[in-house]
């Protein structure tokens, strides 16, 4: 049911290898190009952040596991550009022909626009809507089975390790765009978003310390009230 990116709690990955605080931001020039090309293409307005995350998640498990970080970015971006009809397979193969003017060329991000675009960001909260169902301190249970309830294999932000678990509402973030819907062009469908606190023992068979906890940001439709 889950995809390869959903790796929280997985065994077998070996030690974390910290890098020095002063290490270069981009370990190679092409990393920087990959990031910049991806951000610049986002400004063409053909997809949202959830679509682009899902494009990375939809890389085949073999590609996802063997690709380095920015290889995932650039490969998923390429797939998305074709899927959204920005480029054709012939374009990628080098014989797409010289089109007169690309219909999206007037949306090209200019150097002068960069600072404004980066500084304004893309807030995910939305005003209005019904009051949140849950209050601070209430017990809730996450959906089980997890996964996208609308689209088989679709995008969701409820990690597999936290399905069917009981936690406590720690914080209310307001109403946020629902990625499960927005990633698939089914509308923003904003819902109340909560920080939910789980005891480590609710999530893992073995825990390191009886008071350790994990907090996740979860949308209202991922949760139900736990009465007991």
């Amino acid at each position: 049911m889950s995809r390869v990116h959903d790796m929280g709690g997985r065994f077998g990955d070996g030690p974390v290898v910290p890098d020095a605080e002063g290490a270069p931001v981009f370990a190679a020039d092409w990393h920087a190009r990959a990031l910049a090309v991806t951000l610049a293409c986002g400004s063409l307005g053909q997809w949202n952040i959830d679509t682009s995350r899902h494009a990375r998640e939809r890389l085949s498990p073999k590609d996802y596991a063997r690709f380095s970080y920015y290889e995932k970015w650039i490969s998923a971006l390429t797939d998305l550009l074709v899927e959204k009809d920005v480029l054709t397979l012939d374009d990628l193969a080098g014989d797409g022909g010289a089109c007169a003017v690309h219909p999206l060329a007037d949306r090209r991000l200019s150097a002068a626009q960069v600072q404004g675009v980066l500084a304004s960001g893309g807030p995910a909260d939305r005003a209005g809507g019904p009051a949140p169902l849950f209050q601070m301190g209430q017990k809730v249970r996450t959906r089980h089975p997890g996964g996208n309830a609308m689209v088989a294999g679709g995008h969701t932000r409820l990690p597999a390790y936290a399905t069917g678990a009981v936690g406590v509402i720690e914080r209310l973030h307001g109403r946020h765009v629902l990625p499960d819907s927005a990633a698939h062009d089914l509308g923003e469908a904003p819902e109340p978003l909560y920080a939910v606190r789980f005891a480590a023992s609710e999530l893992w068979a073995q825990t390191e310390h009886p008071r350790d906890e994990v907090v996740l940001d979860l949308w209202e439709s991922y949760l139900s009230l736990e009465d007991r």
């Binding site: 931001v25 090309v37 610049a40 293409c41 990628l92 690309h102 060329a105 150097a111 960069v114 600072q115």
Partner: peptide
């Protein structure tokens, strides 16, 4: 490919990289 189609501006890429670097 994207540059040749007029979809990205190399100067914008430089600006993005400079910002985060």
């Amino acid at each position: 490919i994207l540059r040749d189609k007029g979809l990205i501006d190399p100067a914008a890429l430089e600006e993005i990289i400079d910002t985060y670097q």
